[in-house]
Design a protein around this nucleic acid. Structure first.
Length: 665
DNA sequence: GAGCACTGC
């Protein structure tokens, strides 16, 4: 001993805290801290234009907290379009504040609430905040709401715009921040009654953009050639190629591998890696492995690499300028997924992926003229491309009766709203005045499409809610449950055949779920997508948890499929009858076909109900179940005239059947 | 006999 100790050395934790504060102070947003707080103090609504890497998402809530906006336990809420972002940003902020995640800083996403009584900084998905309106219509527990990534214009964000603008009028103490990338901030400002725009620069490297001199006839081939050219002529750095879907990506990867094989040792090693959302996780993870020295990595991706994930080391981007986009035709109720030219905003986002670590280059496989004249400025917002049944039900249950005049930033097509209202009326969720019924109120509690929630509520009377909950969960998993890799098509189809039971696809799905071991091993052996099964189980658990609140008893019909199929007739809007060559929808006499993947593809029953109508090569009904036409009159006498249900192809049908119309009134 | 962009409650 005997040594004089001066001030005690800083502990590990304190050192870490200090360096973290240094990082915070080095962010581009830091010099703007005081001005930003002053602007927020002065204005109720502020649009914040901040590029990626400015630090706005992690810092602004902390600045507000430091400035006293959480006094008295008031919360600061910040929405994100994606679950992963909400989780990871919350974790980062908790670390910066040296608190345990879930205490002062937390997040809330579907299936997972990581918040507590103490939580004052709450990150959440935009859909989650939308649901919160149901329990707290004025958001009274919040002092600030931040809508982040507003430029993405997700369906939920767009609805939030209208609702928040409305409550801001009678809650002058509520601060609203709309944060967006450099895009369209004027439009946001205009929508929010000329709210001022506060600009924060980002930290990005320059990206040189190159166009082709003439349009490319075959963009897949052009991609392959460009990759090889970059590989041979350009300095080190990985390549990111944007294609539209799995099939294209597989084809591109195969072509690249084949040409590299042919060139052999004449060129350096090229690692070719595909990435798309449906790719099994272990294969997805490969894109993040560091590139070995001397080699080059090329990642061939869908739009997933545009926003959802970032790959380090990308210096070169190849952009053919196309993407797959969903659209919805409200006149026919049909969805389609079509390859379309992407927007200029999307093209710029793609190019930006080349400038995250160093200066980069983007090769656009179209002409500068096409960029300027043939591409739309921004992508059509989701609200204008989708079925709105769910959203309309939610807004109705928030007491918004006049949806036609709701303050949408970009209103959906009139027909989409009308069809949604019509269907809700037909389901009994709305009365003839367009007001929510008791049934509608119960339906709104369930986070599924109205026709699925109707099915769940109908199952009560047929005593088969246990089974119907499972079917609803399986149907709301939009991906195919069945895994069908190209090289094992026969095995996969055999595995699938093992699950087939009579009655229709819904019963097959029920069978898969019932037999499922839910383990990765079981799924792998049975050619079932593990991720889809896990999701179905999560959805089912959530729905089952809500049954108490809507007063539905969870009971099983055991082996009997009739009650299950009867519950399904809640889907009477989606009825089709066999007619020569295919089917005709009962309501619009539209010609449609059973999807070849359906278990009823060969049986062709006289009457069936389909889950969805999708246009690909033909008008296909996906997920169909056999029913009896008499059930339809039972569940929807107000909707069907018995004449429509007469079976003209059957000579056995007695003519007096038509009288039931009068009998049913 | 066809085929699955991406999110989210």
């Amino acid at each position: 001993g005997g040594e004089d100790q001066e001030a005690p050395a800083l502990s590990q934790a304190e050192l870490k805290k200090q360096s973290m504060q240094e990082v915070r102070r080095s962010l581009p947003i830091f010099p703007y801290r005081e001005d930003l707080l002053a602007a927020i103090h002065e204005h109720q609504i502020l649009v914040i234009e901040g590029e990626t890497g400015s630090g706005k998402t992690t810092q602004i809530p902390q600045y507000l907290l430091e400035d006293g906006y959480t006094k008295g336990g008031m919360k600061i809420g910040c929405t994100q379009p994606r679950r992963v972002a909400a989780m990871s940003v919350a974790a980062r902020v908790a670390e910066e504040m040296s608190v345990k995640l879930g205490n002062e800083v937390g997040y809330s996403i579907r299936f997972e609430d990581c918040t507590s009584e103490r939580t004052v900084l709450k990150y959440m998905t935009d859909g989650m905040l939308l649901r919160e309106f149901l329990t707290e219509p004025d958001l009274a527990s919040y002092s600030v709401i931040i809508i982040d990534e507003a430029h993405e214009r997700t369906l939920h964000t767009d609805i939030l715009f209208g609702l928040i603008k409305d409550i801001a009028r009678f809650r002058p103490d509520l601060k609203v921040l709309v944060a967006s990338a450099t895009l369209d901030t004027e439009r946001f400002s205009c929508f929010f009654d000329d709210a001022p725009v506060f600009r924060i620069p980002g930290r990005r490297f320059p990206v040189d953009i190159f166009y082709t001199k003439a349009p490319e006839a075959d963009y897949l081939e052009a991609c392959v050639v460009s990759v090889l050219q970059i590989h041979v002529t350009q300095s080190p750095g990985d390549i990111l190629v944007f294609l539209t879907g799995q099939e294209e990506i597989e084809a591109c990867c195969e072509l690249l591998q084949e040409r590299c094989r042919r060139l052999g040792s004449k060129i350096a090693e090229l690692l070719v890696l595909p990435i798309y959302a449906n790719l099994p996780s272990d294969m997805q993870a490969k894109i993040f492995n560091p590139t070995p020295p001397g080699a080059r990595k090329v990642v061939v991706a869908t739009n997933i690499a545009e926003t959802s994930l970032t790959i380090d080391g990308i210096i070169y981007v190849i952009d053919p300028g196309f993407c797959k986009q969903k659209s919805y035709n409200a006149r026919t109720g049909m969805e389609s997924l079509i390859v379309t030219p992407c927007s200029r905003a999307s093209a710029n986002q793609r190019a930006g992926r080349a400038g995250r670590v160093a200066a980069g280059k983007c090769f656009r496989l179209y002409t500068a003229w096409a960029f300027k004249h043939e591409m739309e400025e921004t992508t059509v917002p989701e609200i204008q491309r989708t079925n709105l049944g769910n959203v309309v039900l939610l807004l109705k249950s928030l007491g918004i009766n006049d949806l036609i005049h709701f303050d949408f930033m970009d209103p959906p097509p009139h027909e989409t709203l009308v069809l949604a209202l019509e269907q809700l009326y037909a389901l009994g969720a709305l009365n003839h005045l367009g007001e929510l019924t008791k049934l509608g109120r119960r339906m709104a509690e369930l986070p599924v499409d109205p026709m699925l929630s109707k099915m769940i509520l109908a199952s009560e009377q047929y005593k088969c809610s246990e089974e119907v909950l499972t079917i609803a969960a399986m149907l709301s998993v939009n991906n195919s449950i069945f895994y069908r890799p190209k090289d094992k098509v026969v095995h996969a189809d055999n595995a699938r055949m093992n699950f087939v039971v009579p009655g229709g696809d819904h019963l097959v799905l029920l069978n898969v779920y019932t037999q499922s071991g839910h383990s990765t091993q079981w799924c792998y052996e049975n050619f079932i997508q593990f991720r889809s099964m896990r999701r179905a189980r999560d959805v089912r658990d959530q729905l089952e948890g809500l049954m108490d609140r809507i007063e539905v008893e969870v009971v099983s019909s055991q082996e009997d499929s009739v009650p299950i199929r009867r519950s399904r007739s809640g889907y009477f809007y989606h009825t089709a009858r066999l007619s020569k060559g295919g089917y005709k929808t009962v309501k619009h006499q539209q010609t449609v076909y059973v999807h070849p993947n359906s278990s009823l593809f060969e049986e062709q029953p006289r009457w069936l109900i389909y889950h969805e109508l999708v246009f690909t090569t033909k008008e296909f009904m996906r997920q169909v179940i056999e029913i009896e036409s008499s059930w339809l009159l039972e569940v929807a006498p107000h909707y069907y005239k018995s004449k429509e249900l007469e079976d003209s192809s059957s000579k056995k049908m007695p003519r007096k059947q038509g009288k039931t119309k009068e009998e049913l009134g």
